[in-house]
Amino acid sequence: MHSVSSTVISQESPVTQSDWTPPKTQEAPAVHSVWKTSILFTLVTAVLFGLAYPLVMTGIAHILFPRQASGSLILNNGQIIGSELIAQSFTSDRYFHPRPSAAGNGYDATSSGGSNLAQSNAKLAARIQGDIDKLEKENPGKPVPIDMVTTSGSGLDPDITPDNAYYQSPRVAQARGISMDQVRSLIAQHTTQRQLGLLGEPRVNVLELNLALDQISK
C-alpha cells in the first residue's frame, strides 16, 4: 500500500495547494496514542455493551416477560416437561409426532441444526422415500404432507402443518380409542393461524396438542 503516497495524490488531483487553508483540526495524533485509545475504547465499550447491556436487559426482561425470558417452559404436575418452543421426541401411536429431527441424535436442544443434505445427495432422496414408504403402510394410498418427511432447519421445530396433524389423526384416534371427530376438533382448536392474518404459515404446536390430548383421554 506504500506506493499510494500523498505525492501521488497531489500529482493526479487538480488541487492547487495555495487556494485553501488546512482546517485547524488537522494535527496528527501520535501513533502510540492510537494504540492507547484503541485499548481503552475496547475496554470501556466492552463493559458497556458486553456486560451492562445484556445484564440490564436480563433484569428488564424478567420483570416484563418472565415466562418468555426463562424459555417458555411448560410445567406438568410440578415438573418441567419441556418448552413450548422446542420440539421433543414422541414415538408412541398415542401421540402426534413432530417432524423428523437432525439435531444431534434427534431433538437434542444442545446441538440444534439441519441435515445439510443437498437435493442432489442420494442419502436425502433415500431417507425421504424410506419415510414416505413407511407412512404409506399406515395410510395406504394417501400421499404424505412434505413437512412430515423433511427435517427442519433447527431440528427443534415445535410445529407441524395442519395437513400433517390431520394425516396422523386416524392413528392417534385408534390408539386412544376416541372418535376421529374429537381428535379433529382438537387439532382445529390448536391450529395457530398466520400471525396478524398475514405472516408465516398456519401451524400446530405438537407439545401443546399432545398435552390437550392427555387431558381428554388419559
Partner: peptide
Amino acid sequence: GAVQARTATSPGGNMEGKEVR
C-alpha cells in the same frame, strides 16, 4: 408419494431445512 404442492394449510415446496412457521 408426497404432497409437495401448496395447500391452504401446508406450504409444500422444498421443506428440508426449513421451519413450518
